[in-house]
């Protein structure tokens, strides 16, 4: 295990943190652009935001946070060499992530049925692009968690601790992005 107090070894390794900051900056700039256009067209963004289902948004936030909690617990047990409990928590984390994707897909279906597609107005252009890219990140995170879980299960020492921690960091990054995205899209206009 590396010394995480060193500037070169943040938890999960420096490479995953470079990716995390690049992603945060990219999504951050897009969220600020959404807020800027929202301040220019307040009425349009307000009426469009009312068309979003806040209950689904809140449940999705809870699902992602719960999933992140399970990953953090899984890491703790993996560190303590309790592989069985670590796997138990990683499985629940994946279920939470899967629940997020299912609920988000239902929300997308509802929007498409109502004719609220990407060309409907500028608010929905931001909605589809930002939540769509976030959806892809959650999907990728889920695949990474699945691969890591299989790797641990197959041969318990195959995956290094840093691999597991980097995968967990990627998963938490999806939480971080959603925590900024959710209030701006669903609550603030």
């Amino acid at each position: 295990m590396n010394n995480t107090k060193s500037i070169y070894y943040p938890p999960g390794g420096i490479l995953i943190w470079i990716i995390i900051y690049l992603e945060l900056i990219t999504f951050g700039m897009a969220i600020l652009a959404l807020a800027y256009y929202g301040s220019e067209e307040r009425e349009l963004f307000h009426s469009s935001s009312l068309k979003l289902n806040k209950t689904i948004g809140t449940i999705n936030t809870i699902l992602l946070l719960t999933s992140g909690f399970f990953v953090a617990k899984g890491i703790c047990f993996f560190k303590a060499a309790n592989i069985k409990k670590a796997l138990f928590y990683f499985n629940w984390a994946m279920l939470g992530g899967f629940g997020f994707l299912v609920l988000k897909s239902f929300e997308y279906y509802e929007k498409l049925e109502a004719g609220l597609h990407m060309d409907y107005n500028s608010f929905f252009r931001f909605y589809w692009l930002l939540t769509g890219f976030h959806f892809i990140h959650v999907l990728v995170g889920l695949v990474i968690l699945l691969v890591i879980t299989f790797s641990i299960r197959k041969k318990q020492t195959e995956a290094s601790f840093e691999d597991i921690e980097a995968s967990a960091s990627f998963w938490h990054m999806c939480d971080l992005i959603w925590l900024l995205l959710f209030p701006v899209l669903y609550l603030l206009f």
Binding site: T4, K5, S6, I7, P10, P11, G12, G68, F69, V71, A72, I75, A168, S169, H172, D175
Partner: peptide, 9 residues
């Protein structure tokens, strides 16, 4: 807390 940045540089 979850990403353990509290332990980082």
């Amino acid at each position: 807390q979850f990403m353990e940045l509290k332990k980082a540089h």
